[in-house]
Design a protein around this nucleic acid. Structure first.
Lengths: 136, 136
DNA sequence: TTACGTGCAAATTTTTTGCATGCAC
DNA sequence: GTGCATGCAAAAAATTTGCACGTAA
């Protein structure tokens, strides 16, 4: 049960700052690219390990939307949101629906299940990609 | 636009039969193991490609529950269900909740989004894993 | 016979890890 | 000074693919 002490390092600060500034739902590669724009000597593994730590701490959320990349976004304790993922253009839209959360809680209770986190994702075609028949 | 014709082969029949008989949410490895119990000469790639085809045809659903393996289950047009995933023992429980589907449809409509499929997963601790403090 | 399907192994792709060195505390 | 953090490159792990041979139709 050794308590590991985490250190504040230049890289970690940079990574976190970048995460705040970056668009949401960044991939590791995307994040690394942005981080390297500031300090080109940061390694992939550092970003990888930092995100892992942050995910474990609950500061960021990991998402696997099925395109083969793990994506990260800052967790928001206040407003939990879920996602609409456009299969055409890849755009990710967030939505909040308290009633769904409520029903979800009831489902969990029905199964005597303690929910720690959840994922609710709708995959389909966003409004932008519906009108134009030609695209891509 | 060449239409590719699919063939019924011994391997495919075996794989599909096995899928029907197997517990739900099998991994490729698990499926392959079961298939090989019947015919040990079936290759990984065959199962892989067959599942891919079936997924594209909408006959099976692919799931990535985050344990690093893609899992498959037969799609059920009638009753769409979602999942409770126990982070302790890995057990996967299914649930149906029409009201959530209904609300979900409203959310999609609100964003003018055409849903093709969705994923609603609750991660946490199942009833079996709650009582006993000692486990694993 | 004519493609499509199969098996094997190699190639890709993404995620993880070992280790020598660097740096925070 | 001590031990966590970093970078690099190598290792793992899972998924895809190329190719020669097999086989359904």
């Amino acid at each position: 049960m050794t308590k590991r002490r985490l250190r504040s390092t230049e890289q970690r600060r940079l990574i976190i700052d970048t995460l705040f500034g970056s668009g949401e739902h960044v991939t590791l590669d995307g994040l690394l690219r942005q981080v390297r724009a500031v300090d080109s000597r940061v390694g992939y593994a550092t970003v990888y390990r930092t995100m892992k730590l942050l995910a474990e701490s609950g500061i960021v959320q990991e998402h696997k939307f099925g395109d083969g990349f793990t994506r990260y976004e800052l967790a928001d304790e206040e407003h939990h949101h879920d996602h609409l993922i456009c299969l055409e253009c890849g755009k990710i839209t967030e939505f909040e629906e308290p009633l769904i959360e409520e029903l979800q809680a009831r489902v969990a209770h029905r199964y005597d299940f303690v929910v720690q986190q959840h994922k609710h994702e709708l995959y389909g075609v966003c409004s932008d990609c519906q009108k134009p028949k030609k695209r891509r």
